[in-house]
Amino acid sequence: MADTVFRAAEDGALPQIPVGDWIDTGFDWVTENFSPVFDVISDVTEAGVEGLRDALLFPPSILLAVLLAVLGGVVRSVRFGVVSLLGLLLLISMRMWEPAMATLALVLVSALIAVAIGIPIGIAAAKSDRVSSALRPVLDFMQTMPAFVYLVPAVTFFGIGLVPGVVTTIIFAMPPGVRLTELGIRQVDQELVEAGHAFGSPPGRILRGIQLPLALPTIMAGVNQVIMLALSMAVIAGLIGAAGLGGVVVTSISRLDIGLGFEGGLSVVILAIYLDRLTSAFGQQRGRLGAIPSFLSRGGSVGKGGLAASSRSADAVTPVGTDQNSPNRPAR
């Protein structure tokens, strides 16, 4: 009783702030004034995602499944290749191949855009403390805002369908790309950067030749995170009409179809595991990919000899970045 009085008094004491109303008006204004821009974005992304989906669906599904499995085998391990093949064949047998490829297209396009925006922002944040501290709350906001909340404004801008799905996915998936890029670059041993300066290297060259190659494992971990988040958001985007596995799950919910829901869910899991293992293999300088940083460090301008040499030396792989701290063994 006293409690309610107290609460009422407290509510009355503070003026009500109509945050929701302001946001609504703001969004209305943006929609009215920028609708041509949104139309263009809409058309481009739609063409991109649908084009990629069609391309993925163009070859016979079994052939593509085998190709994807081979890619996994090359990048990671033969065992991984075999397991992915089994998983992908299961997708086909469950008749989930088509929605899975639609989702994959959506994930790849969104992740690509998120990475293309996120990495430069991460680099900027690594270079400037001011950018970094300005960015932090924004990234926190993007990451902690419940994913569903993004769906509403996206729909008001772009209508129902594929495009709002892509846009929300990009926003939702971008933060780890920015964060891990910044972290990776900041983690590079300062003495190495100093060495670059001491020999008169311009900043751009230091970035390309020293910082990015050494930050690559961390950046790739970020890319992996981006892809995983994109996949989870792509499923949620089914709620606003994005096709694919998200659509399957949404349909199964509306029909209370347990079987269909399970098949959709299982397909998401298969896709997730495949993408995760594949992209994390890029991050861990393992196998044939160990050559990537040394390739990058020469600005990509090596002839065949250079690349061959570096991939050869990558066979006796050394973990990058740890040797600075290793205890000194006496020479010889």
């Binding site: 001491a198 020999f199 008169g200």
Partner: peptide, 29 residues
């Protein structure tokens, strides 16, 4: 930068070698 390139070079306490480049590419930096 030009002055550093042409007239002075530096050796570091913790070596500051580039771990992703070969010994030769380090020396050629």
């Amino acid at each position: 930068r030009r002055l550093r390139q042409e007239q002075m070079s530096m050796v570091f306490q913790h070596f500051a070698l580039f771990p992703h480049r070969s010994v030769l590419d380090n020396a050629a930096y």
